[in-house]
Simulated scan of single mutants.
Amino acid sequence: MKPKKITANEILRHSMHDFLNNMHLIQMNLDMGRLDEAKNLIRKYSLKCNQFFDVNNTGLYNTNELLQMFSWTYNKVTLEIQTSLQKRGAERYDVLLKDYLERFIQSIYPLFRGYKEQLLKVHILTNETLEIHVDLKGDWSPYTWIEETFNGLFRMEKEVNTESQIKFKLIASERLE
C-alpha cells in the first residue's frame, strides 16, 4: 500500500485543523470546570511540541517529518512517540532510518486485520549512541522480517515477532559526538 502524497497546503490544513480541535477540547474542559483535564491536555500538547523540537535537534529531520505526518498517511495505526535525547549529531542516520521505518510500516500495513487497535510505539534515544526502539501491537497476518543492509550504520536486534506484537531495536554503529 502506497502512502498518500501530501502537499504543503494539506499539511498546513491538517495542522490548523488539529490545532483548532485541540484548542476547542481545552476550551470545552474549561467551560465545564474541568481544570485538571484542561491542564493535562496542555501538558500533552506541549510534550508533543517538545518532542518535535528534540528530534529535530538531533538531526533527524526526515525521520521527524515521517513521524509527525504519520497519522495522516497511515490512519489505521496509532503512533506514540517517546524521546530520551541527550546528544546531537545523528544527521548521517536520518535518511536511512526514515526509509527503513517507512518500508517497515508499508510492509505490515496490508497485513492488518479486524478492528483491533494497532499501536506503534517509537522511542528515540540518544545517549552515547542513537537507538530506536520500535514496538507494534495489534492484529495482523504473519509478518516476515524485512532483511536489510544498513551500510554498517545500524544493527538490528529482533526481540518479538508474533501475530500481535513486533518489537525490535535499531542501534547506531558509532557513538554520537
Score class of each variant (00 low, 15 high):
Arg13Tyr: 13
Met16Glu: 07
Met16Gln: 11
His17Val: 06
Phe19Thr: 14
Phe19Asn: 06
Asn22Val: 04
Leu25Thr: 14
Ile26Glu: 03
Met28Ser: 14
Met28Glu: 15
Met28Thr: 13
Asp31Gly: 05
Asp31Met: 06
Met32Ile: 02
Met32Gly: 07
Gly33Thr: 06
Gly33Cys: 08
Arg34Gly: 00
Leu35Ala: 09
Glu37Gly: 01
Ala38Asp: 02
Lys39Tyr: 08
Leu41Val: 08
Ile42Asn: 05
Arg43Phe: 12
Arg43Lys: 05
Tyr45Val: 08
Ser46Val: 03
Ser46Thr: 15
Leu47Ser: 09
Lys48Ala: 15
Asn50Ile: 09
Gln51Cys: 04
Gln51His: 05
Phe52Pro: 00
Phe53Asp: 03
Gly59Thr: 06
Gly59Ser: 04
Leu60Thr: 04
Tyr61Val: 13
Tyr61Asn: 04
Tyr61Glu: 02
Thr63Gln: 03
Thr63Ile: 11
Asn64Met: 01
Glu65His: 11
Met69Tyr: 09
Phe70His: 07
Asn75Pro: 08
Leu79Ile: 11
Leu79Gln: 03
Glu80Ala: 12
Gln82Leu: 14
Gln82Lys: 12
Thr83Ala: 05
Ser84Ile: 08
Lys87Pro: 01
Lys87Asn: 08
Arg88Gly: 09
Arg88Tyr: 09
Glu91Tyr: 13
Glu91Ile: 11
Arg92Gly: 02
Asp94His: 06
Val95Gln: 11
Val95Arg: 10
Val95Asp: 11
Lys98Cys: 13
Tyr100His: 11
Tyr100Gly: 04
Tyr100Gln: 02
Arg103Thr: 11
Arg103Met: 10
Phe104Gly: 02
Phe104Trp: 07
Gln106Ser: 11
Ser107Met: 07
Tyr109Leu: 04
